[in-house]
Amino acid sequence: MVAAETRTKVLEVNDLSISYGPKTAMSGLSLDVYENEIFGIIGPANSGKTSFLRAINRMDAFDSQMNVNGSLRFMGTEVSAWRNDYALRRQIGVVFPLPVGLPMSIYDNVAFAAKLRGVKGKAALDEVVERCLTRAALWDEVKDRLDSLGSQLSGGQQQRLTIARALSQEPTLLMLDEFSIAVDPVTTMRIEDVLKELKKEMTILLVTNLVQQAERLADRTALFLNGSLIEIGYTDALFEGQTQDQRTKDYLEGRFG
């Protein structure tokens, strides 16, 4: 544990609470996420996992119902104190539960973030598109039809497209929200391999409904339940049964959720 604290903190969360109108989605959350780790978040539906991700990339700016209180630092600065919240989001890649291929060409889907960042010139964009699609294990399947609509790919392909898109942002933090929900098992495995590679370059926040997925990928894992953090620990240790809270043990063993 002592070693861990010397690592750079990408996220520092202190007493964070999130509510939508009168409904509380998360309260009293405190945790840190370190550079180059895969941080898994598990928990049943409505436990506040997605709300937490939305708070990190400041989706509350677009949702007048959503309220975030407490301290949430990204790269050492409060997310709410970023002067340009769009620049903040450019540092954070997001992959949604249901794949969202934007209704533009596959090429434009992947080149979009690069263009936002100010990358100019066809050669530079071509390079970004090929690199990101290759990393997301999609290049071979789509390289001959980059002009066709991203929203008309199959579910599994669209999900890899959204990963390629998130990678094209060259993010500091990659957040995946139950990415495998609409993806077949083979694709899921391929994406998981990609994530293990990506860990060397970025920090990954992996929200998952599959306990085994967290076990396979995450360095540390947190359990959320009904809008609060139950337990946080090294994944290996948790799955070996070294849990502080009985509910964690129950959840990991599949007794609820």
């Binding site: 550079e35 990204f74 600065t77 340009n84 620049a87 500091t172």
Partner: peptide, 14 residues
């Protein structure tokens, strides 16, 4: 190298 950029350098109103 990009990873170690401090937010203040990234956080510019463009």
């Amino acid at each position: 190298s990009e990873k170690t950029l401090a937010p203040s350098q990234l956080d510019q109103r463009d």
